[in-house]
Each structure stands twice: as C-alpha cells, then as structure tokens.
Simulated scan of single mutants.
Amino acid sequence: MVEEPRAGLRERKKRQTRLALSTAAIRLSVERGAGNVTIEDIAAAADVSVRTFRNYFSSKAEAIAGMHLDRMLAIADDLRGRPAEEPLWDAITEAVIAHFAPGQPEADHDAQRKRVDAIRLMLTDPSLQGELARANDAARTAVAAAVAERTGTDAEQDLYPKLVAAAVGSATAVATEHWLQCEPGAQVTALLREAFDRVRAGLPVP
C-alpha cells in the first residue's frame, strides 16, 4: 500500500481537527445555547487543548462560522473539478448539492423542531452574524475565482463571475433559511435544487 506523503497527511489531520472544533462548537451551542458555551468546552469536546483551538480559530463565533466557510470553499474547489463541457449552472448546482447531502431524518419530529429552533436562535447572535458575513465575503471571492476559470473571465476585472458568485451565495442562504422554517422532514437538497433552477431560469414570475 502506498503511504500518504507526510505533508498531505499533516494537511488532512489539520482539516480533521478544524472540522472537529467547528462541529463541536455548533453542537454545543445548539444543545446549550451559544451563551452557555466556552472555548474550553469546545476544545474539550473535540479532545484538543485550548491552545490548539486558538491555532485554528480566534473565537467561538469564528469556529461556528468555520464550517460554513469550509463548505463553500470546498464547493468552489469542486466546481473547478467538474467536467469542462458541463453547463455552468449544472456544475454549480451539483457542486453545491454534494455538500448538503441529507442526513438520516429524525423520527421524533418534536426533537427535530427543537433542534431547528435552537439553530435559528444561535444564528441571531450578533457576533456570529459578523463572522458569517466575513465567511460569506471569503466564499464569494473563492466561488468567483472558480467561475472565472470555467468561463474564461477575470474574477477581478469582470462583473460576471462576481454576479454568479453572489447569486450562488444568496440562493444557498435563502434555501437553507427556508428549510429552517419548514415542517420537519423537508429536505434542504430539494430546496437548494429548486432555488438554483429558479435562478438559472432568470427568476420568472410564478
């Protein structure tokens, strides 16, 4: 068996640690309320030291927003890897959907509703909103660069890749926000696909 190069192994472990910290931050904030969670709690839940936490994130809010940023950066990377002959909006839709694969639905709808309500409450935290805004800025830049590569445009000078990146971010945000307001059992992937289909069609009046 071929061993993974040491540099590649280090990067993979760093990604795993970052994901573990972000996952723990979100889970604890949903379970307890964001105001009742400390950096020490998050580090302990991820089985790392507080010093390690600070190597990855400067705050609890940044750790929570980190999962969203990493997901959008991964979507941009996947967009680059989609077949060159694939239509742009097909490629965008599939790249996004791949990173919102639905998990196993909860049998207890009351528990699911409580969890969704807790997520919505967490998202109202002002410090988290600031970090999410910064994450969205970084995500738009990354998606615009990927779109520019696929379309032969300039991510800095041309309007088109920036518009597409903004549309991707907005459609993703609206679909996930709508999902949080739906009855238990709704699939975020179906809402994302509908959102991108409507954007692709030019948002015709219903």
Rank of each mutant, 00 (worst) to 15 (best):
A44K: 12
A166H: 10
I39T: 15
P87I: 06
D77F: 08
N136I: 02
V30H: 01
V168A: 02
H99I: 08
A155T: 08
S170F: 06
F100H: 15
A65D: 00
T153S: 11
L69S: 12
A135K: 02
H109V: 11
D77V: 11
H99M: 11
D70G: 12
D78A: 15
H109I: 03
N36H: 13
D70Q: 15
S59P: 01
A148W: 02
T52R: 15
Y56V: 05
A74T: 15
E156P: 01
E85H: 15
D70C: 13
I39L: 13
A43K: 04
E106T: 12
D125P: 05
S127M: 07
P102R: 13
H109G: 10
A34P: 02
A165D: 06
P105E: 13
A118V: 00
R32H: 12
A133P: 00
N55T: 13
D77R: 13
G152Q: 08
V147R: 01
L159E: 11
E106M: 14
A63K: 02
I42C: 10
S59D: 01
A173Y: 12
T172F: 06
A45M: 03
L128N: 04
T124G: 08
L73V: 15
A44M: 04
A173S: 15
L121M: 10
A111V: 03
L123Q: 13
D137N: 03
G35R: 05
E31A: 14
E131M: 09
R32D: 04
A148P: 00
K60M: 00
R82F: 09
D41C: 08
A34H: 07
V174N: 09
T38E: 10
K114V: 01
H99D: 10
S127H: 11
R113L: 02
D125N: 13
D41I: 07
L69I: 13
S58A: 05
S49K: 05
G130E: 10
G130Y: 01
D108P: 01
K114Y: 00
A166Q: 11
D125R: 12
Q129G: 13
A146K: 03
R54W: 14
R113D: 03
R80K: 12
